[in-house]
Amino acid sequence: MPAKVISTASAEHYTWGNQCDGWFLVRTPQVNIIEERMPPGTSEARHHHVHARQFFFVLEGELTMEIEHHEFTVRSGEGVEIAPGQSHQAMNRSQAPLRIMVTSQPPSHGDRIDEKL
């Protein structure tokens, strides 16, 4: 496949949760790199992945990440790693939009197990 420049304007888009957006910047059987946008006050369901290791990197805004019942505040220019099997939940508790880059290896779609509160 020839090299190409990719952005949210040209990447495959999907929606999730409550008005959240995702763009597949890299989508292969080995790895996914996704840019996500979370409006203020949104969150995902607590879950874990059986195989996927993930890295969440904040591009803009402030991410609250709950990992194994411990909360972490991740700011622009910072990231947090989630190991396979670790329960986690991404939240935007701020009043500003949140933009994050999520790398999953192997891809996390189809590898997710939602957890009850």
Rank of each mutant, 00 (worst) to 15 (best):
M91K: 15
T73W: 06
R37S: 14
A9K: 11
G41F: 03
I34F: 01
I6L: 04
S94N: 06
L59I: 13
L25M: 12
N92H: 08
E68Q: 15
L117S: 12
Q30V: 08
A96W: 14
L25E: 01
A83G: 15
A52Y: 02
F57Y: 05
L117I: 11
N18L: 00
M65Q: 02
E44I: 04
T28W: 03
V31R: 02
V74D: 10
N18I: 01
S7M: 01
Q86K: 08
G77I: 15
V5H: 10
I33A: 07
Q105T: 13
R93V: 13
H70L: 12
V26Q: 13
E62M: 09
S76G: 13
I34W: 03
G85V: 08
L63P: 11
T28C: 03
H109F: 14
S94L: 02
G61M: 01
I82G: 09
M91L: 14
N32A: 13
A9V: 07
R93D: 15
T8E: 12
F55V: 06
S7A: 03
N18S: 00
A3K: 11
F24P: 10
G41Q: 04
V31D: 06
H13I: 02
R93L: 15
E115N: 00
T28S: 07
Q105C: 08
Q105P: 00
I100S: 06
Y14V: 03
S10Q: 07
M38H: 13
T73N: 11
L25V: 04
A3R: 06
K116D: 07
H49Y: 01
G77T: 14
W16N: 00
N92W: 08
H13D: 02
D21L: 09
M1A: 10
A9M: 06
V74H: 08
G22M: 13
A96L: 14
E68M: 13
E81W: 15
M38P: 05
S76Y: 14
H70T: 15
I113S: 02
N32Q: 15
E12K: 10
I100F: 10
A3C: 13
I113D: 01
G61P: 03
R93H: 13
H51I: 10
M1T: 06
H70P: 12
E12W: 05
I33Q: 07
Q105E: 11
A11R: 03
T28A: 02
T73D: 09
R53N: 02
L117M: 14
H13G: 05
M38I: 05
R27H: 11
N92A: 07
Y14F: 14
Q95H: 14
R75K: 15
E81H: 14
H48G: 01
R53M: 07
P97D: 14
H51Q: 08
V102W: 05
R99H: 11
R27N: 08
H49D: 00
H47I: 01
T73C: 04
T103F: 05
G110F: 08
G61E: 05
N92V: 02
V5L: 10
I6Y: 04
V31S: 06
P29L: 05
A83N: 15
S104D: 05
I34C: 02
E68V: 07
E60F: 00
I113G: 00
G79H: 12
L63N: 11
E44Q: 07
G77D: 15
E12Q: 12
D111S: 04
